[in-house]
Design a protein around this nucleic acid. Sequence first.
DNA 1: GGGCGTTATATTTTTTATAATATAACGGTA
DNA 2: TACCGTTATATTATAAAAAATATAACGCCC
Lengths: 119, 119
Amino acid sequence: MHELFAENQAFRANGRLWIEGPADRFLGIGRLELLEQIQATGSISKAAKAMGMSYKKAWDLVSSMNSQARQPLVGAQVGGAHGGGAALTPAGAQAVAEFQAMQERFAQFLADETARLYQ
Amino acid sequence: MHELFAENQAFRANGRLWIEGPADRFLGIGRLELLEQIQATGSISKAAKAMGMSYKKAWDLVSSMNSQARQPLVGAQVGGAHGGGAALTPAGAQAVAEFQAMQERFAQFLADETARLYQ
DNA sequence: GGGCGTTATATTTTTTATAATATAACGGTA
DNA sequence: TACCGTTATATTATAAAAAATATAACGCCC
């Protein structure tokens, strides 16, 4: 396929990967990063800010994940010491770990396909 | 991961795959289908109609592909017998065949990942 | 030569997605 | 008790994407 575009190897295979349920997307790269940020910051609002995302959008994503999973991925407390906060549940931590692994396998797939473009 | 969502196996891995150049997307599933329709119908406008896509969008996509590839993927004639038409060049036919194969490998990857969700 | 269907292109409108703003409630803490 | 930062939610405004509309040119064919 390399004859088609350029000799400078500037073309590459890329893509997006996600897990979807019967009604909606369940987990993708954006939701994964949101979960990671919640894990790191302890709050949905801080996670949203870190990602340059509106709080509403972050909350909607969390709500979508929590309602689709058998057990919520994110637990939240409203009020209290510092206003409240959020954290990953064990199920959330497991989802993060497993989807990270899935992403790594996908990255390898993409690297293989990019290499094949030039072989 | 199956403990996370449901016992009815309604969740699955899904995704999108494309080839991108330095500036823009080069070839994805939508562009592939457009090329296939051009191949089948002999015209950009008929291909667009078959896909429920505006002619302008189809033309923009063809233009993007033709300008990125070393050789155009689609050749077009304006005026003439039936107003003109378009057809795949040999490079276009090759791009279709190779990206179809890439898509098939991706479908297998997604099937493997879906199976892994429940193993 | 006039009509036809197509390519090629620009402009406008509509739709969709995203962001911004607003408000209430909550529960520690000073 | 008043305050604070957060969750939770709705509404409005903005931006981006897509679709619709318009127009010119082209070259065979009747």
